[in-house]
């Protein structure tokens, strides 16, 4: 009996040793190769105020009838996946669906001159939406991006009342399809976040600016407002720009030339 047991145990020991060896051989390279990368992943680092991200809109280059920025934003942030709830009025739905960026066409009352421009969250330095949010779900990152924490938004919509730019949208309907990079849920508020998922992954671009350049218009310049040698500051230095509702003193991160 004893001999039998010992021989059985010996067999099991051999098997366990071999299994451990194989497992170690399989896992070790992964651990060695992946651990340093994981600890250095950019999105685990806290955001700092070294940068302040912003946009310049040159309205003279914004083409009439072009919706490249809007379409790109819709695709990038899953806004094109929204579907009108069955039974909702089509026109009403356009005012209920989430819109992060919209094309606006203006006419000067005196001269009749036409101006086209994209309008999105202006990423204010002193955002009224952040001031009024009761839970702090509406917040400004250290790098100037104003966005909503979907986990603490209670859907009170006070930020929408406070925003001077009608930049925010409330999710009025059940959401069936969404992208991982742009989570969306019924009953919460959201708005343009300057493609924060790209920035956090080290890609310094926004879908709207990229699409505008691809169309050859180059009306949108994305960049760091704090970098004097960066493309945004260089572009800002070349022409006179202003902020929409400059009278409010919000110091917006989005600047416009030609309005």
């Amino acid at each position: 009996m004893n001999h039998e047991t010992e021989s059985t145990n010996q067999g099991r020991r051999d098997f366990l040793s071999a299994a451990m060896g194989v497992s170690t051989a399989a896992i070790a390279p992964g651990v060695i190769l992946h651990t340093p990368e994981a600890s250095a992943a950019p999105r685990t680092d806290p955001v700092t105020d070294v940068h302040r991200w912003g946009l310049l809109v040159d309205t003279s280059k914004c083409a009439e009838g072009c919706s490249a920025c809007v379409d790109a934003c819709d695709r990038e942030n899953g806004l094109n996946l929204q579907a009108a709830p069955l039974g909702d009025d089509a026109m009403k739905w356009q005012n209920q669906r989430a819109t992060w960026i919209r094309k606006v066409k203006l006419q000067d009352n005196l001269s009749g001159q036409i101006t086209n421009l994209p309008l999105m969250c202006q990423h204010c330095e002193h955002p009224p939406c952040v001031d009024v949010c009761p839970t702090g779900a509406s917040f400004k990152r250290a790098d100037g991006i104003v966005m909503v924490d979907s986990h603490t938004c209670i859907g009170c919509r006070y930020c929408m009342m406070a925003c001077p730019y009608k930049a925010r949208s409330f999710i009025h309907e059940q959401v069936d399809q969404k992208l991982t990079r742009a989570p969306r849920g019924k009953g919460c508020v959201e708005s343009c976040n300057l493609c924060v998922h790209r920035l956090d992954a080290g890609d310094l671009s926004t879908a709207c600016a990229e699409a505008c350049s691809a169309e050859g218009h180059r009306a949108l310049v994305f960049g760091d407002l704090k970098d004097p040698s960066g493309p945004l500051r260089q572009a800002l230095a070349k022409q006179r720009t202003r902020q929409i509702r400059q009278d409010l003193g919000l110091n917006t991160g989005v600047r416009y030339a030609g309005i």
Partner: peptide, 25 residues
């Protein structure tokens, strides 16, 4: 409507049905 562009009339604001520059229904 929220007045964002003094001295201008808003001819178009997003997609048709999206409301800006005119009284919201």
């Amino acid at each position: 409507p929220q007045e964002m562009f003094p001295g201008h009339s808003v001819l178009q604001f997003g997609a048709p049905g999206d409301v800006g520059g005119r009284v919201a229904p």
